[in-house]
Amino acid sequence: MTTRKTEILVGIFVLLTIAATLLLGLKVANQGMQANGDTYTLKAKFDNIGGLKERSAVKVGGVTVGRVESIELDSDDFTPVVVLSISTQYSTFPETTSVAILTSGLLGEQYVGLQPGFSFGDIENLKDGDFIEDTKSALVLEDLIGQFLFSRDSD
């Protein structure tokens, strides 16, 4: 009889662990949302990526549509190339789309903001592996201050 009780208690222990794992997986790490993950990649060259990191969010109008997959330095012209992996659910960005590195809040993380361009006539959609031409770099505080001081001096 004691073994039966032991087995039941160990069973409860295992169930508790499963519940904890589910909580951590679904509620904390949000694994459920990432599971439906068919993605395609877009690339963009920036002059300066600021504090952008791998796995930073890619957002359109505040909605997360993908993640930064990798950041490399182009060996020819020494500019950073950011590879974005975007859910295939959002696969119809026109070629005129622009991309910028933005900051969420004053102290927040940096993310990539996509600004879809107009699509008319013979403008094609961006395909897997395409470069986005129109990019705006991250704001670097020191540069801003420098520009501000410079423009005050010239007044």
Binding site: F13, V14, L16, T17, A19, A20, T21, L23, L24, V28
Partner: peptide, 16 residues
């Protein structure tokens, strides 16, 4: 077997 299970429960309970 037990200790990783306990660690998972610990983290989950701590977050709660």
């Amino acid at each position: 077997i037990s200790m990783p299970m306990l660690a998972l429960i610990f983290s989950a309970v701590g977050i709660l």
